[in-house]
Write a protein that binds this DNA or RNA. Structure first.
Lengths: 357, 357
DNA sequence: TGAGGTCATGTAAGCGCTTGCACCTCTGGG
DNA sequence: CCCAGAGGTGCAAGCGCTTACATGACCTCA
């Protein structure tokens, strides 16, 4: 049981024993000094820090986690990142976590991957997990994990009793649709697959309610996946079938951009013939002509809030039963056909006028 | 020193002791059975798996890492993700790592963050680290880390003796520039800050060499940061100063899109008056008019290769002194003013013709 | 001058796993 | 019928930290 006096794992890195020896103190003191603990004499602390620096000491995260019963890492589960949407969530999440001294372990759950195994493995490596969107982890799995680790969800169906974050969808979608109606549109379709509990589902609901309020009916719903091809395909369909539409609300910008582009290719004027609106305010939305009217969401903030809340839960805070809903903001550009703003443009603000709410 | 017979951390989760007890075997056997080891009798294995399932057992990652001297996690250091570029790298990296059963810990190094501390902390938590681009970790830091952990770099200045991955920049940039020259352009400027060892730096070098080969000189170099405002600003400058240019090679698409948009706003025809080409093939490139001629890079593959190599290094493979360079591919759309392809479009292929190499 | 504090540090017991080695129980061959 | 293997398990020693608790040294005040 006798410790070798100089310890140095073959892997190369110095251990806390080496630092202790070099500084002429015990490992306990090294640990305290490095943790910036209160009760260490300044001279001792100096000696320890010097020794650590000289040895290029990096504490072993696993050992620290095991002894301290805390990994100082948060997990983030996302569906396969494609758009800038998830990238922004990730940036917000990581930045916030990093500010708190926490690492971030990400897990992308593609359709082909087995989320069960991966999520469990993740749970064993972090202090808490945030589940974004319909990342392949289903409610049962999330609920189970949440029984042994703090959990928050974002832009995703709630888990009873757990913290949830959303960006506003339904009301904003209704307002966006109403905006089209005010501009005189009457035969308004929806493009996107409205799944229950999903963002697009909520947008669809808002779209329907605005129509109802105006005494209109949905012209058509194109339940298509959110990929470019869908938008292109639907545009062709509309033209080929001579569908009588004057506006299309799209579940996201990707669909809207593809749709709009193809409509124009086929000679349909946007917004003259058909108005198009999207959702997400992707980069491209401001560069196309006409500029795409869409909805900007505080996505980065969403990620940051989730991370901070998760950290608080790990520290023992109680879950907040009220979901947090972040305001979304309609960005009027040219494609909705309202009082068309001047030349659309990427300039910082003058060309992104009339941001509502 | 006597173990309690039933062990169950207060945190809630069952430990390996609980599983062992329930299955009526030792923890060693549980460990082996769960690791899918060879030397466990089928009946025993069954008993263990059943017990584990019933207790909802999730092994503690830290303990496992400490005992096994391996975290089964890889680190990925990126500069603050903005574009789709880093998102794609991340997807490739995570997917490849995940396939190997490894977790991914990401670290975003913003300009304001202290990379030193964060990178060290990361090093203590993973088996190996991939450094992307000019993520704030400088060469000295990366070199130091690489002395105690396997390290690879991607799209970044090499660290002597370490594995490096790139997408081709210089030759492709030269070909892209030559393409403009063949189309009759003579007064060709460069937009972007060409820093040594950076992607944009290499593109700039290629640009210069193509000009030299053609006996031309660089019209101007606008050394601007890769943000929208730079593009917009430069466009204004060009028009205001009446600069005599007929083509601009941009360091990336973000600059190209902003520049092109603003040029058009100010009445300059693209490509009629000035041709514009970018780099990255962002989503928006295909939706603007004219479509942006740009360069597509196998970014996701870059991430995947880095992850796989890193995993191999962790398993004891020797570093490969030869850097891996992935081919880039010029995507001709309308903005370069060559034999303008028909109506540009997002359609899968017919509208993205003449992909060279 | 000694009891009682206070401060700084050391001692050592784990944290929950993995794994080398010892041990036991069968088999089959000589 | 005995012994050498071989297959299956258990024992127990760590992995590199953190942190109660114990221990001294030194100070204060009656």
């Amino acid at each position: 049981m006798s410790r070798q006096t100089t310890k140095r794992s073959e892997r190369g890195s110095a251990t806390i024993y080496a630092v202790a020896e070099r500084a002429g103190v015990s490992t306990a003191t090294v640990s305290r000094a490095l943790a910036g603990s209160d009760k260490v004499a300044p001279r001792t602390r100096e000696a320890v820090l010097t020794a650590a620096r000289e040895l290029n000491y990096v504490p072993d995260g696993s050992a620290r986690a095991l002894a301290g019963r805390r990994t100082n890492a948060l997990g983030l589960v996302l569906p396969g990142i494609d758009g800038p949407y998830y990238a922004a969530v990730l940036v917000g999440f990581e930045t916030a976590a990093s500010d708190l001294g926490l690492s971030v372990v990400i897990l992308l759950t593609g359709p082909d991957t087995d989320p069960e195994r991966a999520v469990r493995q993740l749970a064993g490596k972090v202090d808490g997990i945030a589940f974004m969107s319909r990342s392949a982890a289903d409610d049962a799995l999330v609920a189970e994990i949440s029984r042994r680790r703090p959990v928050v969800t974002a832009a995703r169906g709630r888990i009873p009793g757990r913290d949830a974050f959303f960006t506003e969808n339904e009301v904003t979608a209704a307002r966006l649709t109403a905006h089209l109606i005010e501009a005189g549109r009457r035969r308004i379709a929806f493009l996107g697959r409205p799944e229950p509990d999903s963002d697009i589902g909520a947008r669809y609901t808002g779209y329907l309610s605005a129509l109802r309020d105006a005494g209109l009916e949905s012209a058509t719903t194109f339940a298509a996946d959110a990929v470019d091809e869908s938008g292109t395909q639907v545009a062709r369909e509309i033209v080929a079938d001579g569908l009588d539409l004057d506006a299309i609300v799209c579940g996201n910008d990707q669909l809207a951009l593809a749709l709009m582009h193809q409509l124009q290719e086929q000679g349909v004027e946007v917004p003259g013939g058909i108005a198009v609106v999207g959702w997400d305010d992707v980069h491209a939305a401001r560069y196309v002509r006409p500029g795409l009217t869409t909805v900007a969401q505080p996505v980065e903030e969403l990620g940051a809030l989730a991370a901070r809340r998760l950290a608080a839960l790990v520290d023992g805070a109680d879950p907040d039963p009220e979901p947090v809903v972040l305001d979304s903001r309609i960005v009027h550009r040219g494609s909705c056909g309202c009082a068309t703003p001047g030349p659309s443009g990427p300039e910082t603000s003058p060309d992104l006028p009339e941001e509502t709410r």
